[in-house]
Design a protein around this nucleic acid. Structure first.
Length: 260
DNA sequence: ATGGCGTACACCGTACGA
């Protein structure tokens, strides 16, 4: 089973890119983040015509996540199911869980945090803390669990092109890294790191200043799997091609191959 | 260098991203 994740920065603006990507790199499951679209406006038809069933947790203008799969995603769960729908942490559509081929997949768009010390930064840390609670339950329920998406944290300095310039800032501050490690410690393996020890490999590059062409990036999009599933992971790669196409997302897709 | 670039929504600018 091949599982990919991609922050597309608007699904309506990127539908041609998504179709082109799926044509060139067929996957079994594609998790999308930053749909920026309510469910009614999601471009369902072209994606279904390409052979993918769609489960959506959309929202007008901001956020929004989806799970696309060759077989219909089963038992979809939006947001934090243990919190009421009107809870502030459920106000953003940032989590969608679904089951495909015996694997529980969670498409996650974790908050950006804006800047250290802001209200959005506090919201980010609260979201991570709540996600830990949710994942503890899900890991116990699903031995084959795959958490993917835009986590908005660079785990190590080698995930940053200029760690000195970014030191202490949002996306790599110690509280964020501690919160990220607390999620991982629930019981996940970073599938990309399983296959790549080196730095300089990123998943996001700023639109400004030709950052991509200078490889001024961050690795903030992740594929994590529980040990039972991660043991079968034979490859995990960032696909740089879509970032080179015209009008790209600022993120590249990350794909992982699970066998056995 | 609080800009630089892109998207959405609404309006001819503002919010937001990472």
């Amino acid at each position: 089973m091949i599982i990919a994740t991609w922050n597309v920065n608007s699904v309506r603006a990127r539908v041609e890119h998504i179709l082109k990507y799926l044509e060139r790199q067929p996957v079994d499951v594609l998790c999308l983040q930053e749909l920026k679209t309510q469910d009614a406006d999601f471009p369902r038809e072209p994606l279904e015509a390409a052979g993918y069933a769609v489960s959506i947790a959309g929202q007008k203008t901001y956020n929004g996540v989806a799970v696309l799969a060759r077989e219909a995603p089963a038992d979809p769960v939006v947001g934090f199911p243990h919190l009421p729908p009107d809870h502030p942490l459920n106000a953003h559509k940032r989590l969608l869980a679904a089951s495909v081929g015996g694997v529980r997949v969670i498409s996650a768009y974790l908050p950006n945090g804006e800047a250290v010390g802001t209200d959005k930064y506090s919201f980010k840390l609260a979201f991570f803390a709540e996600l830990r609670t949710y994942l503890e339950v899900e890991v116990a329920r699903h031995p084959k669990l795959c958490l993917v998406g835009d986590f908005n944290v660079a785990a190590e300095d080698k995930d940053i092109y200029d760690p000195e310039a970014w030191a202490g800032g949002v996306l790599c501050s110690e509280p964020e890294r501690t919160a990220l490690e607390a999620l991982r410690a629930v019981g996940f393996v970073d599938c990309f790191r399983k296959h790549h020890a080196e730095g300089g490999l990123y998943s996001w590059w700023d639109y400004r200043g030709g950052a991509f062409w200078k490889n001024h990036g961050l690795r903030i999009d992740h594929v994590w799997a529980t040990p039972e599933l991660a043991a079968t992971c034979t490859a995990c790669e960032v696909d740089l091609s879509p970032r080179k196409w015209k009008k790209p997302s600022d993120h590249a897709p990350v794909r992982a191959v699970f066998g056995g």
